[in-house]
């Protein structure tokens, strides 16, 4: 079996989840703190779009922005000598764009669950907004935030549509597991496809199991105590 799709998938999903996790956190914090319901609604809508649109639409826009003949893609090529489209970077980019809404929404939901009085109490105690985020908001929203991270990782690993559009399906370069499954089936090699499916199943199962463990720990936390 050719292990390169497994490697490429991990090389894609791990950096992608790192970017998504912190970007999603900061965006969620920013939108939660944004003044004005209208501004919040617009930002929220934009950040959620990739979740409700077909990934091929996201891929279309990515091509439109980063394609070699587009201004931004041109800029990257001329300035850094980096061709974004149809490269390893493109698989990461596609995974980030598609998984970001999951991270963003999970983090926002977790932040909204934190009692506003805690934040106001921190403010009257002289804590800066950044200190509040680090010491109050994030620790008290942590289970929901980690859930978002796991969901984003699983989604990034399974990304197909946008990846095919912007990164293509180049064996040994941009062919991730989902694309390898598709290619194997298209070539009539059900056995290879089945092996890749097994790998994806295993990883997905581990992610869901981690989610459940996290949920149990959270419940255990609130059950403890009482003296």
């Amino acid at each position: 079996m050719d292990w390169s799709p497994v490697l490429i998938s991990l090389k894609t999903a791990v950096p992608a989840v790192a970017v998504t996790f912190f970007l999603g956190l900061l965006l969620a914090w920013g939108v939660t703190a944004a003044r004005g319901a209208a501004l919040r609604a617009v930002l929220d809508g934009l950040l959620t779009l990739p979740l409700v649109l077909p990934p091929t639409v996201a891929g279309f826009f990515l091509l439109w922005v980063f394609g070699v003949k587009r201004p931004l893609g041109r800029l990257f090529l001329d300035l850094f000598g980096v061709r974004v489209a149809f490269s390893w970077g493109a698989t990461v980019l596609a995974a980030v764009v598609i998984s970001l809404p999951l991270m963003y929404r999970s983090a926002r939901g977790a932040f909204d669950q934190v009692d506003r009085d805690l934040l106001d109490a921190g403010r009257t105690l002289g804590m800066s907004e950044w200190t509040l985020f680090r010491r109050v908001l994030l620790p008290n929203a942590l289970p929901g935030v980690l859930t978002g991270g796991i969901l984003a990782f699983a989604r990034g690993l399974g990304e197909f549509g946008a990846t095919a559009m912007i990164a293509g399906n180049i064996a040994g370069k941009t062919r991730t597991l989902p694309l390898a499954i598709y290619s194997a089936v298209a070539a009539g090699d059900m056995e290879t496809a089945g092996r890749y499916v097994a790998v994806l199943l295993l990883v997905a199962f581990l992610a869901v199991a981690a989610l459940n463990l996290l949920g149990d720990r959270r419940k255990g936390g609130s059950r403890r105590g009482g003296s």
Binding site: D117, L118, D120, A121, G126, R135, V136, P139, N140
Partner: peptide, 21 residues
Amino acid sequence: LPPQRRRVGYLFQNGALFPNM
């Protein structure tokens, strides 16, 4: 003045202690 610079203490109905501390 932002609350951080008012030097005003606030005791909430339910205490609002930080649960993670």
